Amino acid sequence: MAVWGERLAGVRGVLLDISGVLYDSGEGGGVPIAGSVDAVARLKRSQLKVRFCTNESQKSRGELVALLRRLGFDISQEEVTAPAPATCQILKERGLRPHLLIHDGVRSEFDQIDKSSPNCVVMADAGESFSYQNMNKAFQILMELENPVLISLGKGRYYKETSGLMLDVGAYVKALEYACGIEAEVVGKPSPEFFKSALQALGVEAHQAQ
């Protein structure tokens, strides 16, 4: 305990990943990782501020929180920093109209976004929707733009489900970057801006968080 006390000296907040840290997704929604429910409960009983950061892009933030609560976690939607809401804010601020290459489970997050005459492409972990036809459509839209903008909800290589490792959005982002000769803007981990937004929501500085 003394060692932990020393390590946490000056720490005011904790950022927690979700997938692969709190639970593994899979059939029936997934399963909590051993000890994670209790660990979150103990953190919340402490003096530390807690926020959850995720690149989850197959579920809306509301659906993800509902799942975690069913698995036993004490968590609210306001405590979660997720890439889809952050991306919507960026689209509105910059007047961007996206072509969406995303999973149907997160499409509702973009209901209030103008998607007519796309002037950018937004992609996420689209799962089975990563077909040649859909990837080629995104490629064609980007190539037709004078200043192509590709925004990705995360850039992970793979993630874990109960059935095994699953290919993530990063591989598909790399394909479009290579084909179009551009670099994607990443909203989500590992983007420093994503973590900064979570810290701002906590009201702590980077040196005060773990």
Results as ranks from 00 to 15, higher is better:
Gly164Ser: 08
Glu185Leu: 02
Asn55Phe: 06
Pro190Ser: 03
Ala198Arg: 02
Phe130Val: 08
Glu27Cys: 01
Asp114Arg: 15
Val187His: 11
Arg70Ile: 09
Glu93Asn: 13
Ala34Cys: 12
Gln77Phe: 08
Ser46Leu: 00
Leu142His: 10
Leu22Ser: 03
Tyr23Pro: 04
Tyr159Thr: 08
Gly154Val: 01
Met143Trp: 07
Ala66Gly: 12
Tyr172Ile: 01
Trp4Leu: 13
Leu91Pro: 06
Ala184Leu: 07
Glu56Pro: 05
Val186Asn: 09
Gly156Glu: 14
Asp24Leu: 11
Val122Gln: 05
Asp104His: 06
Tyr159Asn: 07
Thr162Asn: 00
Ala206Ser: 07
Ala124Gly: 15
Glu93Phe: 04
Glu193Pro: 04
Met1Glu: 05
Glu161Leu: 11
Thr87Cys: 13
Leu101His: 05
Gly20Val: 02
Val122Ile: 02
Met123Phe: 10
Ala206Cys: 06
Tyr172Gly: 05
Val37Lys: 01
Ala209Met: 04
Val122Ser: 02
Ala84Pro: 06
Phe110Cys: 02
Ala198Lys: 02
Ala124Cys: 07
Ile102Arg: 13
Leu8Ala: 02
Met143Cys: 13
Pro190Gln: 06
Leu68Trp: 01
Arg107Phe: 03
Pro192Thr: 12
Gly28Glu: 10
Leu176Phe: 13
Ser46Gly: 00
Glu6Val: 14
Tyr132Val: 13
Val169Gly: 03
Val31Gly: 07
Asn147Gln: 14
Arg107Ser: 09
Gly164Asn: 03
Ser76Pro: 01
Cys53Phe: 01
Leu96Val: 05
Met166Cys: 11
Val121Arg: 08
Arg51Asp: 05
Ala171Lys: 04
Ser197Gly: 09
Glu109Leu: 02
Leu71Tyr: 04
Lys196Ser: 11
Gly203Gln: 12
Gly127Asp: 03
Gln58Lys: 10
Gln140Trp: 08
Ala39Gly: 07
Ser76Arg: 14
His99Met: 10
Val169Leu: 00
Ala201Met: 15
Lys189Val: 03
Lys92Arg: 11
Ala39Arg: 03
Gly13His: 04
Pro118Asn: 08
Tyr159Lys: 07
Ser36His: 03
Phe110Glu: 00
Gln77Tyr: 09
Ser191Gln: 06
Lys196Val: 10
Arg7Glu: 06
Ser108Phe: 09
Ser197Val: 13
Gln89Lys: 10
Leu100Asn: 09
Ala206Gln: 08
Ala206Glu: 11
Gly164Asp: 10
Cys120Asp: 10
Val121Cys: 01
Asn136Tyr: 08
Phe195Met: 14
Gly203Asn: 11
Ser163Thr: 15
Ala41Ile: 08
Ile182Lys: 11
Glu63Ala: 15
Lys44Arg: 14
Ile33Phe: 09
Glu6Cys: 05
Ile141Gln: 04
Ala86Trp: 11
Cys180Ser: 07
Lys160Leu: 06
Gly28Asp: 09
Ser131Ile: 13
Gly164Met: 00
Gly154Trp: 09
Gly154Ala: 10
Thr81Pro: 07
Leu68Cys: 01
Ile141Met: 02
Ala209His: 07
Gly10Leu: 03
Phe194Thr: 11
Leu101Ile: 06
Glu27Leu: 12
Cys180Ile: 03
Gln200Asp: 15
Ser46His: 00
Pro192Val: 04
Ile151His: 00
Ala171Asn: 08
Gln200Phe: 01
Leu199Pro: 12
Lys115Trp: 01
